[in-house]
Amino acid sequence: MINLKRAFSFALTDFYRNKGISVSAIFVLTLTSLLVTGLFLTHGVSSYLIDTIQNKIDITAYFKESTSEQDILSVKDEILANAPNTKSIDYVSKEDALSDFLQRHKESEVFSKALIEVGGNPFLPSLNIVTGGNTTQYEKIAEILEGQQFEDIIEKVDFSEKKATIDTIFSITRSVNIVGLLLGLVFVFIAISIVFNTIKLIINTAKEEINTMKIVGASNWFIKAPFVIEGGIFGLIASLVCLLLTVIAVLALTRFISVILPGFSLVSYFFSNLFLILLIQIAVGVGVGVVSSIIVVNRHLKV
């Protein structure tokens, strides 16, 4: 216990006495943590983008006015049986369609007047289908709806242009993900090498001292612990600095991102993942700091 207390005391004293070196180690560790955090946030934004597009309605099948609810639901069952991975199929009755329309345009007199002029409920019952962007599913559903089986009850089928959009976005995101991941890994590797070399430089200057400590009888643990703790302190401070910078960046960027991606709040995404982000930042900062220290000190302990 007394030794652990001393190891902490040595680490803090060294940290304070070598302020310049400490600051440079914290700086490179902060950059590494920021890089990893940036990758995490970018992943969040792109996931949201894909999710939003996937959840848009792909196909709307409008049924003839006289079609019974039971018949429509049997079409729904047929689709589910043939394309079980369909994300959602919602039945919208004539009445639901009308009330939804009225709700959406309650402030517009033009639409209300138009409805009166048409007379009655002009809407048709429908099935809103979300395939989730799977091309095979999409084609299967299209085949069922356009087939002869339901020719008599289906008035028309609306295919959104989403298929092409999804294909394009998928190919873009796939490329971006692969390139991003590779680039990310390269940057993280470079960052870790810089951190490792910075800590190596710091500990190399203490090489003679480590030798002296060994000659006067200090145990490996007694010599190593302060360096490892110091590496941990570098990492912890770097994590806190990184967190602070991330909060500032998130607050500054959230409005800008909301304009590009309506409905996505970077602030909410950040705070709902705060624990995970903190964990990543501490793991990167403290982990890299501590592991680098252990590796470098071990090299000098063979006296």
Partner: peptide, 13 residues
């Protein structure tokens, strides 16, 4: 290891 360090503690250099 510690055995060698114990001897070194008994020697003032």
């Amino acid at each position: 290891g510690d055995y060698l360090q114990d001897v070194r503690k008994k020697i003032g250099g």
